[in-house]
Nucleic acid binder design. Structure first.
Length: 453
RNA sequence: GGCGGCGUAGCCGAGUGGCACAGGCAGAGGUCUGCAAAACCUUUCACGCGGGUUCGAUUCCCGCCGCCGCCUCCA
């Protein structure tokens, strides 16, 4: 039985999809007004891994993740750069997607853009106005009236009183709203801003309404899983629920949130200015190392990331690849997958990827031991399991055959000749020469083998 | 101030009411190697502090200290 931690219940609960064998999930995507940072990367890796696991577990999964392509920050940034909003978004979307591709993130089944679903949003807003949950402020827009919905706060476990007490303590209260906690559903356009038509005049949707409208439309009422970063629990996800419920819909049945990523113990974020871009890290390190690092921490916890952590993870990846090379050299690549039960058991327990990886690395050792002892069948079986489970976690092992290179081959051969002649000075000199060219030579029972570092 | 989370070896980081074999990285010693590399074996180092419940607490409860997140845009 698959169990997962539901934010609303604040507990691990049995996962029972609303339609047997099928899972519908929605994960809040990013607002591409700048390059992606490592936090985006973590979120993508976490939910991609959960999605892959559900598929691997036999569910037919429909995975939807949105692109917020209209929003205040996009407008501001486009203005700064003297470009248009669509151009800005298109440019950064490419950056996001290519970074995600390198992380082996599967594309969503559907990736709705906010601007393509305006009509759906205005319909939802109109419903909220009709139901008495929203009100219009002339010249400003439409607001959701929080105190009309008694269940407000159920996800983030806050009461209206608590919210009213702290609201305004840190933020300027908008004078036109009936209560400080009320939030915008529709924002009236100022001159020069991109705008869409609506029953309340030209304007654009509020951030929260997008996700409610698009998730309900694409996945239907009562879809199974809604995910996102833990910093979205309040107010974003709370508001999504309010909008859907207020309009008479049943919303997500399970809420999953990934923990934040810390640099030197502090949350990494745009506002703190301590963020590291995903692009930089993926250029400096094997993208699989970042993925491994993310999965070595449980998804709900905060995790530390820095150069040391990334370098360590890269070495761990090297260990996997080294085994793959060994196995390929022995021609043991095809074997049935062995025991996956320990893996499934820990993954079924709220996606415990650190424990799952521990099992994978135990199998790596088993395979190496078997190879050392000449137990080829055993080795092949362990390796097949390693490869299968690593791939399930989105990590592909590499055992590239060294590409043909006459010059390198000649050097390696010359070194071999020197070694045969026991001319160690010469053979070491050649090895140093190769090393300068980024070539690693390993002397194996089958003779010397080389690869690029 | 309100709500929540966390504090496990040198670092990252799982887990558990019953001896702490998690795992990765690093350190030490060894096997293999001409030397390496890779691999394997052995090994050093840890449950923040104080109470309580219990036969037994790192695990459950309370308090304290420290750190972090949310309460505002945020993954």
């Amino acid at each position: 039985m698959l169990r997962l931690y539901d934010t609303a219940m604040r507990a691990k609960v049995d996962f029972v999809p609303s339609v047997e064998g099928r899972v519908s999930m929605y994960v809040c995507g990013a607002t591409p007004y700048d390059v992606p940072h490592l936090g985006h990367g973590r979120k993508e890796v976490v939910f991609d891994t959960i999605r892959r696991y559900l598929v691997w577990r036999g569910y037919a999964v429909k995975y939807v993740s949105n692109v917020t392509d209209i929003e205040d920050k996009i407008i501001a940034r486009a203005h700064e750069e003297g470009t248009t909003e669509p151009e800005l978004v298109a440019r950064f979307e490419v950056t996001f997607r290519s970074a995600f591709d390198r992380l082996n993130i599967l594309p969503p089944d559907d990736e709705p853009r906010a601007t393509e679903w305006i009509e759906e949003m205005t319909r939802l807003i109109a419903q909220l106005v009709a139901n008495g949950h929203a009100y219009v402020v002339e010249g400003q827009g439409v607001y959701f009236q929080v105190d009309t919905l008694p269940s407000y706060g159920s996800l983030s476990h806050r009461t209206l009183d608590e919210l009213l007490e702290s609201a305004g303590a840190r933020v300027d209260v908008d004078e036109r709203k009936r209560a400080p906690v009320d939030f915008a559903l529709w924002k009236t356009a100022k001159p020069g801003e991109p705008a869409w038509d609506s029953p309340w005049g030209l304007g654009r949707p509020g951030w929260h309404i997008e996700c409610s409208a698009m998730s309900l439309k694409l996945l239907g009422d009562g879809f199974d899983i809604h995910g996102g970063g833990s910093d979205l629990v309040f107010p974003h996800h709370e508001n999504e629920i309010a909008q859907a419920v207020g309009a008479g819909h049943e919303f997500a049945r399970y809420w999953l949130h990934n923990g934040m990523l810390n640099v030197d113990g502090q949350k990494m974020s745009k506002s703190l200015g301590n963020f590291v871009t995903l692009v930089d890290v993926l250029e400096q390190y094997d993208p699989r190392a970042f993925r491994l690092l993310v999965l070595q921490t449980h998804y709900r916890r905060g995790m530390e990331v820095g150069e040391k952590e990334l370098a360590d993870a890269e070495k761990a990846i090297g260990r996997l690849d080294a085994l793959a090379r060994r196995v390929r050299a022995d021609g043991l690549e095809s074997a049935p997958v062995g025991d996956i039960t320990p893996f499934r058991d820990v993954m079924d327990d709220d996606f415990d990827t650190p424990a799952a990886l521990a099992y994978v690395f135990e199998l790596v050792r088993d395979a190496n031991v078997a190879l050392d002892e000449g137990l080829q069948d055993t080795a092949a079986a362990s390796f097949a399991t390693v490869r299968e489970l690593a791939a399930e976690l989105g990590i592909e092992l590499r055992a590239e055959a060294p590409e043909a290179d006459a010059e390198i081959d000649a050097l390696v051969e010359a070194r071999e000749a020197a070694r045969r002649a026991k001319d160690w000075a010469e053979s070491d000199r050649i090895r140093d020469e190769l090393s300068r060219r980024g070539i690693v030579v390993e002397d194996t029972p089958r003779g010397p083998e080389w690869r690029r570092e």
